[in-house]
């Protein structure tokens, strides 16, 4: 464990907590894409298959449980909670996210480190996570007015993967034979997808104006 990875995990945890806090306290999911949340639930479900078979550390197991429980409860809130579901704008959240799942799965079948079920599911979860934010970014561009919590949520989600890139660089130089091209490239693609959001987020923060994304 290194400081970049710990900071990345804490940032990721913060993004999930910000979202849960928003939904639980103000009972609203306005501006949140259910599709992105469903994709993230699928990402964690396929990545943490080894939750009960490979014990790495208490921290690792605990965080996996937190991410699994939080992502599925967010999906439940938006789909089934009698008040929250009313604020879900399904007419705007129209990204056909199922079109992301199949290509990622096919790609994982072709490009992976080991042709085993667990490894293919793990690789699939990496590719899927890289594109999971797309429905949310499309929704942000459509709804224009981004409330602070949603903006912070997306920012933290992008920031965590950027910190992970620093972690991969650190591990590459400190641990011999630590090479995971698939992880690195999908993590880089994921972070690049946030690039323009970061730019507008930083501009709004610097000029102290409300965050607006160009249509």
């Amino acid at each position: 464990m290194n400081i970049f990875r710990l900071a990345g995990d804490m940032t990721h945890l913060a993004s999930v907590l910000v979202l849960l806090l928003k939904i639980h306290t103000i009972k609203s999911c306005a501006g949140i894409s259910l599709k992105t949340q469903e994709l993230y639930a699928l990402v964690f479900a396929t990545r943490y298959l080894d939750l009960f078979t490979d014990y790495i550390s208490l921290y690792n197991t605990l965080m996996k449980l937190i991410f699994l429980v939080s992502s599925f409860s967010i999906v439940w809130y938006i789909r089934h909670h009698k008040i929250v579901r009313r604020s879900y704008d399904k007419d705007q959240d129209t990204f056909r996210h199922y079109f992301l799942v199949l290509p990622c799965f096919l790609l994982a079948l072709v490009i992976n480190e080991k042709f085993t079920v667990k490894e293919i599911m793990w690789t699939f979860s990496l590719y899927l996570e890289a594109v999971a934010i797309l429905p949310q970014l499309v929704l942000l561009q459509r709804t224009r007015n981004i409330d602070n919590l949603t903006g912070q949520y997306v920012f933290l989600l992008g920031a965590y993967r950027s910190l992970y890139i620093l972690n991969w660089i650190y591990r590459y130089f400190t641990e011999p034979h630590y090479v995971h091209w698939i992880t690195w490239i999908s993590g880089l693609v994921q972070t690049l997808l946030y690039a323009d959001f970061f730019y507008y987020y930083f501009q709004s923060w610097k000029n102290n104006v409300k965050l607006e994304l160009p249509a």
């Binding site: 080894d50 490979d54 790495i56 690792n60 996996k64 080991k114 490894e119 793990w122 992970y164 972690n167």
Partner: peptide, 10 residues
């Protein structure tokens, strides 16, 4: 202890 290419990151 980590087996082979088991993934230790979240």
């Amino acid at each position: 202890t980590q087996k082979g290419s088991c993934h230790d990151e979240l």
